[in-house]
């Protein structure tokens, strides 16, 4: 694909692969270690909820906005939910202006599925009038610096942003939102769908790749997992995995998710 510009030169790539084959990484982490997760809350006053997430050099900002909409015919008593991502040209030479390319579309959709399917949001509580009026929750992700693993950074940011977001005031008579935040949070549960993207580089599996490591990744499996229950999976890129490797990927995700949850909980 032409829209995937690689920024890592060959020599660096070979060295990274050699290190990984010995279980080592440039930054001293083990293959299944995440970088430190740093979250800053409330970075944009006009959003109902917003955060900045940093994973090493990677930085994304995530904002939550609410709207009033009509429910879908197949879920008349449930609120709507939508995640979109913009991979900004300001965040990397890999990204360009123009309509969203596949990478951004996939990122939005995979983050969306992880949150939607897990039961993290109680959609029925977002219903205002069955079949007519429901809250629509928009989660928008912007990349600020692409240092690898935008996928997990975005999903982690979405979790915290939704957790801290407050509903705006809704004027029922005029049927519009008055932008004045209430004390009411978005109805979320304690099921936290932790994102874990497992990458295969050479024969090694690793998580939370730097940009250089991600450039070498042949396959990525992104998993949303909460307490051993998997709610979403997306295998990306054209390299096959054996059945045993795939099973191992799920075990890795399960292990890593426990540590990530602990780190993330510091910001709850």
């Amino acid at each position: 694909m032409v829209d995937k510009v690689r920024t890592t030169d060959r020599v660096t790539g070979e060295r990274i692969a050699k290190y990984l084959s010995e279980g080592k990484r440039f930054d001293g982490r083990g293959p299944l270690d995440f970088r430190k997760i740093i979250v800053e809350k409330g970075i944009s006053k006009k959003a109902e909820g917003s955060v900045r997430v940093k994973l090493g050099e990677t930085e994304v900002i995530v904002g939550v906005k609410l709207g009033i909409g009509e429910p879908y015919p197949d879920s008349p008593n449930k609120g709507n939910f939508m995640v979109t991502a913009e991979l900004l040209p300001l965040s990397s030479p890999r990204f360009e202006n123009g309509p969203p390319k596949f990478e951004a579309i996939e990122l939005g959709r995979v983050v969306d599925r992880g949150l939607r399917e897990s039961g993290f949001i109680d959609f029925e509580k977002l219903c205002i009038k069955e079949g007519e009026k429901v809250w629509t929750v928009f989660v928008d992700v912007y990349s600020i610096n692409d240092g690898g693993n935008l996928m997990d950074a975005a999903a982690l940011g979405a979790i915290i942003a939704l957790k801290i977001a407050k509903l705006p005031k809704y004027d029922e008579e005029q049927n519009k939102i008055v932008f004045e935040l209430t004390n009411k949070p978005i109805p979320i549960t304690d099921i936290i769908p932790i994102p874990v993207s497992v990458h295969k580089v050479g024969d090694a599996f690793l998580v939370d790749p730097t940009r250089e490591e991600e450039d070498l990744s042949k396959t990525r499996v992104t998993i949303g997992i909460s307490n051993g229950i998997i709610s979403s999976v997306q295998k990306s890129n054209s390299e096959s995995l054996s059945i045993d490797e795939m099973k191992k990927v799920f075990e890795i995700a399960n292990e890593v998710s426990k540590k990530t949850l602990k780190e993330l909980q510091k910001y709850f």
Binding site: R113, E117, S118, G119, V221, I225, G228, I229, I230, S231, S232, V233, Q234, K235, S238, S240, L241, S242, I243, E245, M246, K247, F250, E251, N254
Partner: peptide
């Protein structure tokens, strides 16, 4: 038996997915 595509939507435990 090489897996070339894998997606999932829903809820399932690690053992059952195997």
């Amino acid at each position: 038996g090489k897996i070339t595509h894998f997606q999932l939507d829903g809820k399932i435990g690690v053992e059952q997915i195997k």
